[in-house]
Nucleic acid binder design. Structure first.
Lengths: 236, 236
DNA sequence: CTTGACATAGGACGAATGTTCAGGTATTAT
DNA sequence: ATAATACCTGAACATTCGTCCTATGTCAAG
């Protein structure tokens, strides 16, 4: 199929670099023909082709039919400087701050409320928790949602009333991950470390002084999400 | 002679302002006709005339025969724009993200390491925790420092091994605040809710199933800092 | 009043520019 | 082999765009 289905080709990369240098030097974007000249490509359509790739992959932004309207959105590391870097910094720094929707409360006797569908976000922007992205996993950050813990029923998970639990929606889990599970037997939600051991599942409390729960029938363990982070704030 | 020999006319001023706003909004310079539209001038030559004035007086720079190549060099105080604003954005956005020095580890049997003196920060920038300012108290954020919890000795404080505790240096505390205290009697550090009740001090564990500790001599309670936040991360 | 510098308008002109189409070649999956 | 997809060429087009020329209006100084 594709000669190269991964990342960026040599030429788009070179274009991206050139865009940064040119904008740095001149203060405005190069025209399509100027770009072509730099990468030794006569045809304007080919440059347009590369630019479309860059746009699709989110590296640049263009305005239809407007000359010299290319804006660099991100750049794959590599050398860049001056204004271009300053602009990039603004954008990236903004993105560093994740706004995670606070979708509800969680308690032992309550099922886990589900987050809003991705895309159509209907949650109140006021009810959001801002977390630095450096503290969060890199991938699928849009599947994160936050819950406030209701009641003291999760003290065995070392989670207190009022704590904010940041979760990632998931139906399965890997060994060692902390998950929110709904236990059919006892009809309650708890936070436990998940371990699949042969055909049975071991649910280990965070509190090391407490023993694990074993569930022989994996179907009786309903994983509602993986716990990414717990934040506890204290009044000052 | 001239009707106006002083500074800039109304229209050039308006153009200058528009240039900044447009570049801010779109990331590239407006065309001459777009400028004309904004100041209700049909004729492109008149806009060109104004632009030449601005160029002569050193407010802008243009490249001959290149579209959208106007760069703003300076702006008469008023509405800052373009790069100036970008720089300001960087600064403000960066400030939103608190970099809190991770100065060491804390355990029941260890005293609380003290944070570096404010001003002369000598800590490794790698060992820092970034927290969104919206989650932190507004005042004296430069007195914050972070500690990683070492060992399971603080489970009674609902704090686990590996948790990150963000503290504010303090020698005193108000009722209801969580503090790190050094207890002379048992010679250990713990995290407890602080309550001064008459002449004695009540230290209440976070774990609601555990009872408080009473200390009759307030001098035997050495407050090392107030706990602002506890963050617990899970591997994904 | 005349003159001349400044201000404004309209538009022509050619060059610069983004877009599109029609077709061609290589690479890979089936 | 064949079809699908990616990669590339060339050229034509329709605008957009900057520049420049002409004409008219305004106002203050001589």
């Amino acid at each position: 199929m594709a000669r190269r289905s991964e990342g960026l080709g040599e030429r788009p990369k070179k274009i991206l670099k050139f865009l940064g240098e040119f904008q740095d030097k001149h203060g405005y974007s190069p025209s399509i023909r100027e770009i072509g000249k730099h990468i030794s490509v006569e045809s304007t359509s080919l440059v347009d082709y590369y630019l479309n790739q860059l746009e699709e992959k989110g590296f640049i932004d263009r305005t239809d039919r407007v000359s010299r309207s290319i804006r660099i959105l991100k750049s794959p590391v590599e050398s860049e400087s001056g204004v271009a870097r300053a602009v990039r910094n603004v954008r990236e720094t903004m993105e560093e701050m994740m706004k995670i929707p606070l979708v509800g409360r969680i308690g032992a006797s309550l099922p886990v409320p589900m987050p809003p569908m991705e895309g159509g976000s209907f949650f109140d922007p006021e009810s959001a928790v801002e977390i630095s992205r450096t503290l969060l996993p890199r991938d699928k950050t849009n599947e994160l949602f936050a819950l406030e813990v209701d009641g003291v029923s999760m003290i065995d998970a070392m989670v207190n009333d009022g704590d904010i639990v940041i979760m990632k929606r998931a139906n399965t889990a890997n060994n060692g991950e902390m998950v929110a599970v709904w236990l059919e037997d006892t009809d309650e939600t708890t936070l436990k470390y998940f371990y699949k051991e042969g055909s049975r599942v071991r649910l280990q409390p965070a509190n090391p002084t407490m023993g694990p729960i074993f569930i022989d029938d994996p179907k009786r363990v309903r994983i509602q999400g993986k716990v990414v982070m717990v934040v506890r704030q204290f009044k000052q």
